[in-house]
Structures are given as C-alpha cells and as structure tokens.
Computed example of a mutant assay.
Amino acid sequence: MTTSWLALTLIAIGVFLVMEIVAWAAHKYIMHGWGWGWHESHHEPHEGLFEKNDLYAVVFAIFAIGLFALGTFAALPIVTAIASGITLYGLFYFIVHDGLVHQRWPFRHIPHKGYAKRLVQAHRLHHAVKGREGCVSFGFLYAPPVEKLSAELKSSGRVREEQGERRPTN
C-alpha cells in the first residue's frame, strides 16, 4: 500500500490535533477520575525529577511505539503516520506543559503576553483547586479564556487560596 508523503503528513498533523481532544478527555475523565492515584502526584508539591503522574506519558509512549512497530512490520504507512502524530503531540506536551508551564527542565521562561501567557494562567487555574473535583481547563495545548475559567472557579467555591492553602509549585 503506497500513500503519498503529503497524505501521510496530513494524517500525522490531523492526529496531532485530535490528540488534544483525547488528552483533554483522558485528563478530565481518567486522570481526575479512576486514574487519580497516579495524577494526584501532579497536584501536590514534590521533590525530585519524576512524579507518579509521568506514568501516563509512559503509557502513551508504549502505545505509540506499538503503532510504529505495527506500521513498520506490517508495511502500513498510515499506522506509522498515526504514531507520528501521537509522538509529535507528546513532544509538544513535554516542551509546553512540562517545560513552559511547570518549569520542569532547566530552560526558564515566564511568558508575559499572548497565547503562552494564557496557557500558563489557565493551567495555574487548573491547579488552584485542592483535590480532583472542581478543576477547570483540562487541555494541555489549548486554553480557554482566563476570564471564563476564573468565573467558573469562583462559582465553584473550591479555590485553594480561599481555603488558606498554597498552590503547588510544579
């Protein structure tokens, strides 16, 4: 089966875009649901390089590696393009979420304007709630308007600062 490089590139880009929806749903319904046992580490202060929540990245990586293997050994370039889109999303997640938002790697930059600032603010609002209930903004690369998220948080009455607690630094 031959497919043009343009078609495969478009498939990879499409999968990359769809991954934000997949990640949003996984974050809201798995990580803040039955998978809270791993994700809780991300909402609490921690020491060291890794947190239990990083196991989710391992799961997604194993899935992508499996798709790469299937696409390669079964000569299915479309499957390899899908794996490429998932991997590209993982790379952006690592750079934007772990790097820019949580400052988990040495490059330190705090954005003061535009999309990056809104993304950081939205994720801080996500962490403004103690526990898994009442959080806002579950996307990793898309951030709803901060004003909307702030109003949603305020109406929930679950903001950490109102309870006199400090937000995690990670």
Score class of each variant (00 low, 15 high):
I95D: 00
R118Q: 09
F50C: 12
L55F: 13
L70C: 15
K113M: 12
H43M: 05
S41I: 07
R158A: 09
S41W: 09
H123R: 13
R160M: 08
V129C: 05
W38T: 12
N170A: 02
I11N: 02
G85C: 00
T2Y: 13
L125F: 11
A26H: 09
A12R: 00
G99H: 00
A57Q: 10
L100I: 05
A81S: 11
F73K: 08
V18A: 06
I30W: 10
G66Y: 01
E147W: 12
R108I: 01
F16L: 05
G35P: 06
H39Y: 14
E147T: 11
A151C: 06
E152N: 06
H109F: 04
A128V: 10
Q163R: 11
H27E: 06
A23F: 13
P168R: 01
L100R: 01
F107L: 07
E165L: 13
R124C: 14
H126D: 09
V146Y: 01
F107K: 03
R160I: 10
I11W: 03
W38I: 11
R118V: 00
H97N: 05
L8K: 02
E40D: 12
T169W: 14
A12I: 02
A64Y: 06
L6D: 10
F94H: 12
I62K: 06
W38K: 08
G71E: 05
I30V: 13
A26V: 13
G85V: 00
L119N: 04
H112F: 07
K28N: 02
Y115V: 12
H102T: 04
A69M: 10
A26Q: 06
L6A: 13
P168D: 01
L67Q: 03
P77V: 14
A23S: 15
V96A: 00
W36D: 07
L49E: 15
F73S: 14
H32Y: 04
A116M: 12
I82A: 06
H123I: 09
P144D: 15
M31V: 03
V96T: 08
V58H: 07
G37L: 09
T169P: 11
D54T: 09
N170R: 02
V136F: 00
H102V: 03
P145R: 07
A57V: 12
L141Y: 15
K148L: 13
G90W: 07
S4N: 02
L70A: 12
L17E: 09
A12S: 05
F60G: 08
H39P: 08
G85F: 01
R118G: 07
S4R: 05
I86K: 01
L88A: 10
F94S: 14
F16A: 00
L153Y: 02
V15Y: 01
H123E: 11
E152P: 04
L67K: 02
G157N: 08
S4I: 01
T80A: 15
S155G: 14
A75E: 15
I110C: 03
A7E: 14
S41N: 09
R124Q: 14
R104I: 00
F50A: 10
K113S: 15
A61Q: 11
I65Y: 11
I78C: 15
S84H: 04
S41F: 09
P77M: 14
Y142K: 11
R104S: 10
F50M: 14
I30M: 10
A74H: 13
V120M: 08
R166L: 07
F16S: 00
I30H: 05
G37P: 07
E47C: 15
A12L: 06
H126Q: 10
W36N: 03
V18S: 02
Y56S: 05
G99D: 01
H112C: 06
